[in-house]
Design a protein around this nucleic acid. Structure first.
Lengths: 232, 232
DNA sequence: GTCTATATGACGATAGAC
DNA sequence: GTCTATCGTCATATAGAC
């Protein structure tokens, strides 16, 4: 117990590397065999270890799915991060919506195995744990907050229900992703028949929800004050 | 071979009834265990027969999936049939689009097991056969034809690409269905958060694609003739 | 068409030696 | 942390008697 030969964090780093490798391999397997076709034995085989060894890192097969689910949402969240920044600062509504929709849909289409696990629930007996689900909620709420901010800043019409705007937004994106993954699975994002429709659909959304004023409301204090200045 | 004791078509009817029963039970199993969790043994168990007996009716498990896939598309096609009729005759674009979207989405949400098998591809190792796929194509092409007819009749704008209209339409519907099934699986069609957004989204679609003329073009021969009168 | 019996195999998961 | 060995379960599918 005293004077250990190796640093504990070094052990932990090795461990974490093995876990990451297992997850990478698992994604490959899901991509080839289908999400529900993932098997612990196949992952171990491809890693060059025996199936029981994997149980050192994952308590069960569902724990493996859970790690993949959480990792997927963290990855898509990371892919969206720069977009959120620009959404909070930019003034060009059309460009921002286009960029946001593309960032999400592109990631989803280019990571079909993750997407199917995250957006559909194709694995009998697996439900995301509360911990894994928290990563999903993070992304969803950041997206909802970004749209709500656009509305607060006067870029989206004030007379529309904030939740409805977001719900319609997710329907558009998930519709494109669903159709693309289901009906043209092999196609790239840039060449997909459905992903190609994304700008047009986003434009439809923007036309419907853009604030009537042509001039975007500035972020700074404005002439018309006294109202609308009371939120955190 | 001569003078059979029972009528062949009677035998065939019994056989067909057994097949239908097996499919009904299979849908129940998919609904409970997940689409990929369907097992021949479980179906047999619930029917009160032994697993090998099912192989008299279905050559393999994938043949069972195939029958379910085809049956699902025939069912949704039947559910849509009256809607197609009204689409071809009616003049109220908003009402027709609303009705069509609701008919499809309602069926999908109320038959989640079928829907997941038909719209997503959650079963490792199963791909619909060409025969089963033909039933899917029937429905898709009838829907596309119905929208194209609306455009030809002047209810949808002539300057929009016919394929694009249909693609956007399917994205809307499938987006609603996907989101509803994935995020609020238990909810009824009438109470679902996403299905409730359907009328609003369809209205967005209509606003975008409705022909600019406020007055709908009549179906009968009209003053402006000589053009547009040449289709089967 | 139904059954019993069985081939055949994969899977998830655990025990315990090293 | 890795392995061998193994348990137990479930699955699809076939052979052949009745």
């Amino acid at each position: 117990m005293v004077a250990e030969p190796t640093f504990p964090d070094r052990r932990q780093r090795r461990r974490q590397e093995t876990i990451e490798e297992a997850l990478d391999v698992a994604v490959d397997v899901m991509a080839e065999q289908g999400v529900a076709g993932l098997s612990v034995g196949e992952v171990a085989r491809r890693m060059g270890i025996r199936p029981p060894s994997l149980y050192v890192y994952f308590a069960s097969k569902n724990a493996l799915y859970d790690a993949l689910f959480a990792r997927g949402w963290r990855l898509v969240g990371a892919a969206m991060a720069p977009v959120y920044d620009r959404l909070d600062a930019g003034d060009d509504l059309a460009a921002m919506l286009r960029e946001a929709s593309i960032a999400f849909a592109r990631w989803a289409v280019e990571h079909p195995a993750y997407s199917q696990l995250m957006f559909w629930r194709p694995v009998p007996g697996y439900t995301p744990s509360a911990e894994a689900y928290a990563d999903a909620i993070d992304v969803v709420e950041r997206s909802a907050a970004a749209l709500a901010a656009l509305q607060r800043r006067g870029l989206l019409r004030a007379d529309a229900d904030t939740d409805a705007i977001f719900r319609d937004w997710t329907v558009l994106i998930s519709g494109v992703v669903s159709q693309q993954l289901a009906n043209e699975p092999g196609a790239s994002f840039d060449e997909g028949r459905f992903t190609s429709s994304l700008p047009r659909l986003v434009d439809m959304f923007r036309t419907h929800y853009a604030a009537p004023t042509t001039q975007a409301a500035p972020t700074r204090r404005t002439p018309r004050r006294g109202r609308d200045e009371h939120q955190s």
